[in-house]
Amino acid sequence: MFELLGIPPQALLGQLLLGLINGSFYAVLSLGLAVIFGLLNIINFAHGALYMMGAFVAWMLLNYAGIGYWPALILAPLIVGVFGIVLERLMLSRLYHLDHLYGLLLTFGLALIIQGLFRNYYGISGLPYRIPDALSGGYNLGFMFLPKYRGWVVVASLVVCFGTWFMIEKTRLGAYLRAATENPVLVGAFGVNVPLMIMLTYGFGVALAGFAGVLAAPIYSVNPNMGADLIIVVFAVVVIGGMGSIMGAILTGYFLGLIEGLTRVFYPEGSAVVIFVIMAIVLLFKPEGLFGRAA
């Protein structure tokens, strides 16, 4: 077999698959951010903290209430979503008339609070969360061993991402939403409860972060800092995809997972920075993002 830069093609295939798995997390998280930004014009810096909260809620459900992984997959995002709605009602809703930057600063503060509180109560070491029995073990694909759970992550994220895209771009509800962001007064005049819709949208975007958190719980340790550095990367993903573009966020999430996976093979030290290099290049040459509409 020929080799590509010293890497056998089978190994490369394995790395690409792993990249896709990581991309799944980026996709779900950046989708949530994009939904919130696209419809509310809020840059939700607390997204990473809420992702962490999703994982913690799953852990708490299991350890305090004996509720396992599958119910948690629904319940934890709901709880995080409701928490998000409370934040939106109490604070964010008062900032809509101001510059974007205030939303960013507020959510930055919220992220500090949430992460700090969890760090105080649960320490930093991380808490274990077991892979559900139905998904333990794995498949031997010949070129690599694929744990079942990682396969499930890809499937679950694809379903959620494209379900969301379909709902926003192809259904009547989505059409209302899009219209409400263009001209809230007019849509309100047609009898649509715009504030309610915005509130639910924020709750939904945040619930997506919680969902990603539950997905992550069994493979990464559940720890208060798990979202802190991730948020910066996910931001970059959204910016590269084009702020507010739903499909852009999804595709860019998977795409950057792949790029990062390749970097890990050819220049592992650089894998933490490659996304920012791409972001700088994209912003300088195509500022509206790869999939965005010109602002």
Partner: peptide, 17 residues
């Protein structure tokens, strides 16, 4: 050997190498 950026959460790629 492979140099892993610090801190890292996902080691799968490096473990595969």
């Amino acid at each position: 050997s492979v140099d892993v950026p610090f801190p890292a959460t996902d080691f799968s790629s490096f473990l595969l190498q």
